[in-house]
């Protein structure tokens, strides 16, 4: 993904009310070609509502949505032809066969009649549905239904693909397949996906937006998010440990915590690293260093921290 890639989706000040209650408070987003954006948030944070508005299934009370420069509210049909949407609950007609359903979806999204057969074969190949074309959707397993759902969203080669919790309810191997597929889609299209699984964000998203109570409270690349509030350091196991003060006396060490009799957590400044010095010292004094594990904040902690920060 390059910074100069064209913007495919731009959203400004989206507001949505349910009755008197405002649930989405002025959201602004931008998505570039070839980018995978993860929309992260607790249940009920407004992720699905936002995504539904992006596809035109719900109308915002104010704000502006542009898909490839086309205003979704003014020219809904032209703009919607460039979107593929997989809602949270799969929109599948259970009594149709996979082929018929996908052909129907293609026609609905204005794929020219002559190209439908090619689009069908290509989409089935990408989603691994080659052998289930004639199956009735209702008889397929959940994982395959999910694939049909995704196939439905990409059959017309949309510029923007919107996936609402695409891996919910799948088994681990299916999750891996779907993630690989999303990653592949992200290279050619723009993808927005909502999720509350942080591992998903870690593995497939280029960029993360965190949503909390109808507001976007954090946006950044997913690697940047992992460093949010992180402190550099490592955990070292010494089988014959010295006194705590000896470790603290080391240059560049900011703080030492004793986790157990043999384990120490050592924190240091971002730009320095005392680990090499420590290891030499350990070898000289026979502290019997066994392992050294760099501290790595998991996304869960970061996410909790960001949402907590917002509350306070």
């Amino acid at each position: 993904m390059s910074v100069n890639a064209p913007i495919t989706l731009s959203v400004r000040n989206l507001i949505r009310r349910f009755g008197q209650r405002e649930v989405i408070h002025g959201i602004s987003l931008e998505l570039r070609h070839g980018e995978v954006l993860g929309l992260l948030g607790h249940n009920g944070a407004g992720k699905s509502t936002t995504l539904q508005m992006l596809t035109g299934a719900l109308l915002p009370h104010s704000g502006q949505i542009e898909i490839c420069g086309i205003d979704l509210l003014r020219q809904p049909q032209k703009a919607k032809a460039r979107i593929g949407f997989l809602p949270e609950t799969l929109p599948l007609y259970r009594d149709m066969s996979v082929n018929n359903f996908l052909i129907f979806a293609a026609k609905l999204h204005r794929v020219p009649r002559a190209q439908i057969t090619d689009a069908l074969t290509e989409t089935k190949r990408r989603c691994g549905l080659q052998d289930s074309g004639k199956s009735i959707i209702g008889t397929l397993s959940k994982g395959y239904q999910q694939r049909v759902g995704i196939a439905q969203a990409i059959i017309h080669q949309p510029e923007v693909i919107i996936l609402d919790e695409p891996t919910v309810g799948l088994d681990p191997s299916q999750i891996r397949d779907i993630r690989a597929l999303i990653r592949e889609l992200g290279n050619m299209h723009s993808v927005i996906l909502s999720t509350h699984l942080l591992a998903e964000v870690e593995s497939i998203c280029d960029r993360v937006e965190i949503m909390h109570h109808g507001r976007l409270i954090y946006g950044g690349s997913s690697t940047k998010m992992q460093q949010y509030g992180a402190q550099s350091g490592f955990i070292i196991t010494l089988l014959a440990p010295p006194l705590l003060s000896e470790l603290q006396a080391l240059a560049e060490v900011q703080k030492v915590d004793q986790l157990s009799t043999t384990q120490f957590r050592i924190l240091h400044a971002d730009n320095t690293n005392p680990s090499a010095a420590l290891l030499t010292l350990a070898a000289q004094h026979g502290w019997q260093a066994e392992q050294l594990v760099p501290l790595r904040t998991c996304l869960e902690d970061v996410f909790m921290q960001i949402t907590q920060d917002e509350k306070s």
Binding site: A57, P91, L92, Y93, A105, H109
Partner: peptide, 14 residues
């Protein structure tokens, strides 16, 4: 009821 209406609503059809 089956939530398939979303498919039609988000398609480029009026």
């Amino acid at each position: 009821r089956n939530q398939t209406l979303t498919l039609l609503m988000s398609s480029p059809v009026s």
